[in-house]
Amino acid sequence: MGHEISDFNTWVDQYGDILFRFATLRVRDASVAEDLVQEALMAGIKSAKNFKGQSTERSWLIGILKHKILDYYRKSSRENNVSQYLDEEGNFESFFDQQMMSANHKAPEWAGDPSGSMEKEEFWNVFRSCLNNIPQKLSQVFAMREIDGVSTDEICKELNITSTNVWVILHRARAGLKGCLEKNWFGNNKDSR
């Protein structure tokens, strides 16, 4: 006996936005995210009788979407070689030096109180855009590690890359994200925010 489940025809209105935002936090391309949401909802419909009501319908659907995203990661890691990207790109050092330099020239501390910023809606929109600014090839590893808390070992296995590459990717992604926040939010004298 399955648990009570709501009318499938209401699902898009009920969960469409939340599932899409969940997906785009982890997958850059909006049309891929739309497909993943559709796949997750259809998979939910097909397995509705397995819904036991141990969690809410929403978190159950999020769980299904999570699996679909991981499948997508595995598939795209076979198609894109991240290690090769790291070798080709090679300009991180100058980027990092630039960051250190700018820290040197300006006050390195973030203007404005970070905890105060975190209470502002506008800040999270900026943060969301900055996440989107992380180069695509780095963003998958970043999402796995920082958003879903997957261990480095697990990421290496799933994406078939070395742990050294994972560390380099994460460092670049963090530095990029930090730089973007400085440029668009914590920059010079925005204390009034």
Binding site: V12, G16, F20, E34, V37, N125
Partner: peptide, 15 residues
Amino acid sequence: PIGPGLSEEASQKIK
């Protein structure tokens, strides 16, 4: 609601 939600077009398609 941080960032864009599912577009009208995609919503219709999935519905």
